[in-house]
Amino acid sequence: MRKVFEKIYLGIILIFMYAPIVTLIILSFNSSKSRAKWGGFTLKWYTRLFSDQAVASALVNTLSIAVLATIFSTIIGTITCIAMIGLNSKLRSVIMGITNIPMINADIVTGISLMLLFRFLHIGSGFTTILLAHITFNIPFVMLSVMPRVKSLNFYVYEAALDLGATPLYAFRKTMLPDIMPGVVSGALMAFTMSLDDFIITYFTKGSGFETLSTLIYNEVKRGIQPEIYALSAIIFVVVLSLLMIIYRSPNNKTKEK
């Protein structure tokens, strides 16, 4: 009996979480513009979406920023994590402390603080500023994912490789990198998702006339929702959901859960 109640409870929460998303995806195939009527199945919102110039450029902006931010933040984050091994604990805690700031602070404050910086430095707003901002808030996520791997490294294996005549770089590549790699991969995926997904920080650092998908949606929504937005949302949901599935299925996370 208790089991039945538990299952019902889980079911209700799941419905609460996913029913709205499903509704929205269904609406994206609704040929009627009204949200109250089902006018038949259509793909016209999708075709209209793909022929929309503003959406196309926002998509390109979003993807290129996400890809570049992921690459830079993954490289910087991973190198820093490895460097942490050789640092004294004081410096290490300083770095971790600073890294924690963007994770703890409210996004709105991070956003406006970066906006003030970019205005002050007269860095042209748009692509560059958003990219810098995204790299900044992505690095902590990469480090969060790589750090446990670095901490659990077995240095004896590295020393054994040196002992067997390997050069330090070769030994690092063959012994440590494979151990860190799963953390790097899931960190990169995480960074990509965060970047793709960010709205608040992008909103404050974008300046005018430059849009990513998130800011485009926000502007559209304030004007009144068009069915194209449902189509766009549906696509983003599916893409982000698949990315997340990959992250959570990666072996790195499975071992973490154990």
Binding site: T80, G86, I139
Partner: peptide
């Protein structure tokens, strides 16, 4: 020193893009 050198790019980055902006606020 070499470890510090390796960590320094991020340290510089963090100062410019995390500490300074917060100080500006």
């Amino acid at each position: 020193k070499s470890a510090f050198l390796m960590a320094s790019p991020y340290l510089v980055w963090a100062v410019i893009f995390i500490v300074v902006p917060l100080a500006m606020v």
